[in-house]
Design a protein around this nucleic acid. Structure first.
Lengths: 212, 212
DNA sequence: TAGTATACATACATGCATGTAGGTTTGCAA
DNA sequence: TTGCAAACCTACATGCATGTATGTATACTA
């Protein structure tokens, strides 16, 4: 079917649109990182992407829709890139440390701040963006809490406060560290792992030098 | 002098003004915590304090001045309440853990978020609020870095990345944890200390509840 | 090659929050 | 009590960003 697709050098129409859309998304993510939602001015977003607000309003319903699209994009890229890192590890503790390192690496593009900014601005608020953020955080915290409980059963993580509380603290520490270091490799990764280990109550710091 | 001051039940005039000012300040701090700077609407601030915008504009030059006053207030209360906690400790490592715990306690009033919000919105920006925040953070980081270096010399803190980097990460983790737990005692304090210990590279978790 | 839909730009309208100016009340001093 | 200076309130003016409506160019279709 669609023999044209095979012949044509590029699906110029759809590709053009997709190109614009992702350029706008990337610009919006940067903008959200730097200015937050309220201070984000759509004209700047469009200009930084090489367009005008007209293009933006053609691709997205409005500011809110744009922010939600950024969140969706983050959600779709985070899990394959970072979320899976816990799988291949020998135990849950190592998995959570790998997650921490992976998150730090992932956040070297200035997306971490976008998430944190939106979370601070909207978390707990009765707003579509707030609900979306809270949903994402809840999913992540639940996932980490499961890892923690598994780790406690298998003995790789010592007992302590409720797993959900630990998971919340773990995530908070992650984001705090990553933002504070703002992608300054290689320490961002190192400190994320250290903070994670501390929160979980792990004693020896594993692989803190580069040798596992 | 001013024998009136001794006679009068209250310095009604000045006291009235001070009362209004601090009520507005407190309301503003809460508002900044919840909504951030850009989303902070001065009418709400005034109303929550029992006034109108008129009173606010009588006490402060405007929104920016109000935010700066909140920062000044935080700066003036933080050091006596928290900053001093490092002094009485046996070594620098213990001092930094005490600082972490103290900060968590201090932030149970929702001031932590106010700081973090403003920091995220303005840090690195060419704006009076941004410069003030950056100054405060720089002072704190420098102070912590000194403690870290002292701790390394005396052996209570193991060597590692540059002290300033460690201090930045330490502060970031603090704020992240405190925000994530949002004043949910007693775990906020516990996790702040754990994260701090992890960042610093301390092995045994000291005084983590003892019998847990 | 003509027609149409899509991608994008320009121009206008609206709302909302800040800041300011002018008024009213309250306290204090002669 | 009279007068003045505060604390405080009400009403207006301005600016800025969003959203919408309309216009133009570029790509696909027949």
């Amino acid at each position: 079917m669609t023999p044209a697709a095979a012949k044509r050098p590029r699906a110029t129409q759809a590709e053009r649109s997709a190109r614009s859309r992702s350029a706008l998304l990337e610009s919006a993510a940067r903008g959200l990182s730097r200015h937050g939602y309220a201070n984000l001015v759509l004209e700047e977003v469009a200009r930084d992407a090489g367009y005008t607000r007209g293009a933006l309003y053609h691709q997205f319903k409005g500011k809110e829709d744009l922010a939600l699209a950024v969140l969706e994009w983050v959600d779709e890229t985070w899990w394959p890139e970072v979320g899976g890192l816990a799988e291949g590890q020998p135990n849950a503790a190592a998995g959570l440390l790998a997650l921490a390192r992976g998150h730090a690496v992932y956040c070297r593009r200035d997306i971490a701040r976008a998430m944190m900014t939106l979370r601070i601005e909207f978390s707990g608020k009765d707003h579509p963006v707030g609900r979306t953020i809270d949903g994402m955080v809840k999913t992540l915290v639940t996932y980490c809490a499961q890892l923690i409980e598994a780790g406690r059963k298998e003995g790789s993580i010592p007992p302590g406060p409720p797993a959900k509380e630990v998971a919340s603290a773990w995530l908070g520490a992650m984001e705090g560290v990553v933002i504070a270091l703002a992608g300054r490799a290689p320490h961002d990764e190192e400190f994320a792992a250290r903070a994670a280990a501390g929160i979980l109550g792990l004693e020896g710091l594993p692989a803190s030098g580069g040798r596992e």
